[in-house]
Write a protein that binds this DNA or RNA. Structure first.
Lengths: 325, 325
DNA sequence: GTTTATTGTGAAAACGTTTACATAATTCCA
DNA sequence: TGGAATTATGTAAACGTTTTCACAATAAAC
């Protein structure tokens, strides 16, 4: 249509400076006129060096607002680069995680951003060993050195618990998540560190963790509230557990913060609408996403770069659920 | 490796019954041994008839839990079929919507599930006119007949408002969303219908709508509460507006439901944890997603089928935010 | 006016599959 | 046992690009 070969069209599309201005304009005109759009599938199939404009994201739980923030951060960057993001939400199911990794692998994405289901995630390890660019979020891998972006879980938990201690609480329960997950362990460590610093003994009976979901939150908080020596405060390890605890407290008609104080890990956008507004540890999910995709592009360009470990600060959002003013 | 041609390997992969059992086994063994994975990019490039195992999803707001439910419904089905889902979140930005549609188009996805940014969405129309399989969710197109799956917005709003009326409320405000969006109009229609049925005059001054976000919710509820003849109840048109209203009410120290009743469109998983638990219109997002992808696959197989219009029921979740027992 | 550099363009291979067609291998029937 | 019918496999084109290489056209140098 522009009277040139497809090779020249390709060059124009890729901004190759070698084409004459005259032909470039002719081609661009023809592209406009014909409504031509390059086929990204063919582009990906062919090109080895250049960016394939597609990145894969493997997420454990898309219902968790924290990951939604992460996704938004990643997407923002991807959008700015004309890249698309393929999201696989594996709902905490390792089998499904594997399927998504396989799919994305065979989609020849530029790279992967993954929250591995656990520290010894063989599928993610295999991915890295096969030379793919991978950045982990929220949790790392125990056997392998890899780029990781996550929150400062220990510090975040420490601050939350210290806040409670400074308000006068001495018997603080902790509803934690799946003990197999690194994140859980770090948050427990922060909890303990705050106790240690203030010379308060840790009672292992009031640190209880199972799966990270609403049900566990309800169940564990019931157990804790039935204890003979009832805690005056509860520190929950993520937003679903927090909801479970609130449910129980509401149901038992206990007053927050007078009868029981609550601090949650994971700030959520509706935390201020709770009554009373919830004091919570805010993770900067959006920023985590941004840093992750930046690292990913760096890794793609410099595969030999040493793995980075980015720790993103948390922020204690003090609201009204803590009591003992 | 199995001593056969690549054509035969392809046939084995696609379950072509023509291959001899013996060779099939040999090939399968070789596939296992070599860790071979078919390249989906090449598959998509080549194959015209068969499913490309990729569907495109264009969503206005991934932070809205309703859409998250929709996504989960879609993904569930896709996962069961070994398909992947590419998600484009355009954050209510039509430019971004267009970019994502273009990207997905050139990814040669099997089909699209889209929530068009407005009724005259030219990009979505173009998609359909170009012969792509498209299913709309949440809102349809005004110029074009297309498969649509959405909630029964009018009925949902009607039930919510009638519930308030039956509890004795006579002055019910409505904080609505973007007036340009069909969904908004339908919810307003339901609001009016309930008034009409019960012979209560509609005061247009207490129906106010702007963008569907937290800020609007705060602003409009402030306006409403400052009115000389203050409403005794507020019906909000979506979960972000609800949050905004709750924020204002909490800040002004008003008691729910004694001083002001609240019913929200969009039930959310944390509605029960609010204090008091929120009465809300539940949309079955997961089911909407499921129906949408079912319709999409049907449309792919029968492009000439007449467009369907699936209306999914809503459910009024009666909790404690309505008062006037 | 030839040779040499420089610049812009085209031809063709390659990416990893699917698929129409051809051919080889097997079975069937007379 | 020879040919036809059937079955299983291989060959090669195609999908829509990118990219290497060669070549043509122009400009520069002698």
């Amino acid at each position: 249509m522009a009277g040139v070969s497809i090779a020249t069209v390709s060059r124009v599309l890729n901004g190759d400076p070698v084409v004459k201005d005259e032909t470039r304009l002719a081609v661009q005109k023809a592209i406009k006129a014909s409504g031509y759009h390059p086929n990204r599938v063919a582009q990906r199939l062919r090109s080895t060096n250049r960016s394939k404009q597609l990145i894969g994201l493997v997420i454990p739980d898309i219902q968790n607002p924290f990951y939604v923030d992460v996704i938004r951060g990643i997407e923002e960057y991807a959008y700015a680069n004309g890249s698309a993001v393929v999201i696989g939400n594996f709902s905490q199911d390792p089998k499904r995680e594997k399927l998504y990794i396989d799919i994305l692998r065979s989609e020849s994405v530029d790279g992967f951003i993954v929250a591995p289901s656990h520290g010894r995630d063989h599928d993610v390890e295999a991915l890295i060993n096969d030379g793919h660019a991978v950045v982990c979020i929220d949790r790392g891998l125990s056997n392998l050195s890899v780029d990781v972006v996550k929150s400062d879980n220990e510090k975040g938990a420490f601050n939350a618990v210290e806040h409670l201690i400074k308000l006068g609480h001495r018997r603080i329960a902790h509803i934690s998540g799946d003990p197999a997950i690194q994140t859980t362990q770090e948050r427990i460590a922060g909890y303990k560190a705050a106790h240690k610093k203030h010379g308060i003994p840790v009672d292992p009976k009031i640190i209880r963790g199972r799966e990270s979901n609403f049900i566990s939150g309800v169940a564990i908080s019931k157990e804790l509230l039935a204890l003979p020596q009832r805690p005056t405060a509860i520190f929950t390890a993520n937003n679903l557990l927090t909801l479970g605890a609130l449910e129980t407290i509401l149901q038992q008609g206990l007053k927050i913060p007078e009868e029981i104080a609550v601090v949650g890990f994971d700030d959520v956008y509706w935390a201020t609408s709770l009554n009373p507004p919830l004091t919570a540890v805010r993770q900067h999910g959006f920023e985590i996403g941004q840093r992750a995709i930046e690292l990913l592009y760096q890794r793609i360009q410099h595969p030999e770069r040493l793995p980075a470990n980015v720790i993103v600060k948390t922020e204690l959002m003090v609201r009204k659920s803590c009591g003992f003013k």
